[in-house]
């Protein structure tokens, strides 16, 4: 086997394993990972077939951006939310099988037609027409396929704008600035910063120990409200406090 054969059989079978993993994974995040794995292996195949630009763009766009967005959404939705297996679309299995078969036929016919009917020039010649792979792609995109390329980009921009319009909401009130938020925090009269922490003494350092104010009284804000409601606050030993005050005043 030549080097290309080795790359094909290894990366090709990895890509198939990844595709199967996508279908058979129970967790959505695992499925997304299998897709990323398949994408990387496809990129390897592209590079092995003298299309380094396509291979790199495949990884940057599909693995780096698209699958990362998928992961992002999956992670936002929830770590452990497993998909419900109730099918909401009626007849989706049958239509999926029919469409899948249709795609398979289309691919076989298309690729077969290309293999049988058109003259092959070989990758070296194809890449050397414009002096390199990147230059060749650039010439094709910006000359022969300019309209298709621009139309695709217009479509993508429209989709992005559409998403922004759909996600847009009208503000009822102008957005509060940081300054206004800060002012509001103080004007409301409530404690603007962190509440005082519980008291920490040599004997106790649990949250049920109230902090003491300079005059020896308890700071109510230092006790968590649930503990206060349950009456679970440790009593302050005023004898001890007085001793400390005496030591301090000396």
């Amino acid at each position: 086997m030549s080097g290309e054969d080795w790359v094909f059989w290894i990366s090709g079978s990895f890509a198939v394993i990844g595709a199967l993993g996508l279908v058979f994974s129970r967790k959505a995040v695992h499925s997304a990972l299998w897709v990323a794995f398949t994408m990387i292996n496809l990129a390897v195949l592209y590079i092995a077939n003298s299309a380094p630009f396509l291979g790199m763009v495949q990884i940057i766009v599909y693995t780096g951006a698209v699958m990362m967005l998928f992961l992002f959404v999956l992670m936002v939705v929830g770590v452990d939310s497993s998909d419900s297996l109730i099918e909401t679309l009626r007849g989706q299995r049958i239509s999926a099988i029919v469409l899948g078969l249709g795609l398979a036929v289309l691919l076989v016919v298309g690729v077969g037609n290309g293999l049988v009917n058109s003259a092959t020039v070989g990758l070296v010649e194809a890449n050397s027409i414009d002096g390199g792979n990147v230059e060749g792609i650039a010439r094709l995109i910006f000359t022969d396929y300019l309209i298709a390329f621009e139309a695709t980009s217009a479509l993508l921009i429209t989709a992005a704008l559409g998403a922004m319009v759909l996600a847009h909401r009208e503000r009822w009130l102008p957005r509060a600035t940081q300054q206004e938020l800060s002012k509001g925090r103080f004007l409301s009269g409530s404690h603007p910063g962190n509440l005082p922490t519980p008291g920490v003494y040599a004997r106790h350092n649990a949250v049920d120990t109230p902090a003491l104010l300079p005059d020896g009284s308890i700071s109510e804000e230092s006790i968590p409200r649930p503990l206060q409601a349950r009456g679970d606050v440790r009593a302050v030993d005023h004898h001890e406090v007085n001793e400390i005050k005496e030591v301090d005043s000396q």
Binding site: L33, A43, M56, V57, A65, M68, L71, V79, N133, V134
Partner: peptide
């Protein structure tokens, strides 16, 4: 080196992020 090696660095960096994102997810 090859004709698109700067893109290669970008591509590898974008795979590297998976390490961080997956670490965050997998820690439960």
């Amino acid at each position: 080196d090859f004709p698109v090696s700067v893109l290669y660095v970008l591509a590898i960096a974008s795979i590297g992020i998976y390490g961080i994102v997956l670490a965050g997810w997998a820690s439960g």
